[in-house]
Amino acid sequence: MSVRVVSAVRLVQQRSIVVLIALLVALAGLIEIIRPGAVNASWVSNILEFAAPLGILAAGQTLVVITGGIDLSVANVATAAAYIMASQAPYGVTRAIVAGLLVGVVVGLVNGVGVAVFRVQPLIMTLAMGLVVTGSLNVYSQAAIRSVPGVPAVIHALGSGTVLGYVPVSLFLWAPLAVLLILGLRGTGFGRLLYALGDNLEATRLAGVRAWQVLLANYAACGLLSAVAGLVLSGTVNAADLSLATVLLLPSVAAVVIGGTSIFGGSGSYSGTIVGALILTVLNSVLTLLDVPDAVKQVLYGAIIVILAAAYTRVLGHD
């Protein structure tokens, strides 16, 4: 009995993902029509390379949104992680990377304490922490008199290198991470609890779950993923300035929403988010190809998110 039930859920989820993938293919087709021959292996490679930082950043966002929260500090954390990594690079690459990732974990933990222990609304907590992170980073950058630090070669290779000519190196990080997250959300106790908390916090408590532990771990994980995304991004653009990832904040939420994760929590998947991130990246590529000015690009970008979200809500009939 319940087998049928579960497979029915899967079917609906998969169907919506099929729709999203179809959209992705349609966008690629559009590019091919605009400029025949443009969609080739190196284009795909490029798309994957640019989608990777967004995809990883949106991974953290997905985890938080599933619990019914939102993390508005992901971009600030990514920026800070990359900047601190770069500024620590002269003392050794390992130390630099660890320092960068640590930034993410620490900020994530503070977010987690605020949300889980002090019951602060996630929107507010992460917004405020975003301000704290950016403010602190400004102060730090003035103290570290050095000019904008360079990105170590390893990170540069991670962010923009390719293997066999076409396979981006970042894919070797992103793909295993994606598999881990997709399986983890579906098949581990921790994953179950994220959905449970997003659905009904009080019910989850009544079932004997200490919600703060789950949330704390989850926000820390989100912080860590944001830091990873920041490092990859700094490798992709080969720089780490004070506004590195700022532009990715809104897309990180948009990718999650387009991917079908409910902003109210309790349902969704990372596979959807991946497709969402790819759609946004391809969309950007289409607009660039059309030589659309940045301002118009922004307007179209916004309009398309509205249309996608509306279509999605209509199709799945959430009430």
Binding site: N200, A207, S267
Partner: peptide, 21 residues
């Protein structure tokens, strides 16, 4: 509804105490 996860499956609802630590 105070005790249940409305959007989740019957199975996940029943199995919730199995993952509570």
């Amino acid at each position: 509804l105070q005790a249940l996860l409305r959007q989740r499956s019957v199975r996940e609802n029943i199995a919730l105490p199995l993952v509570n630590r």
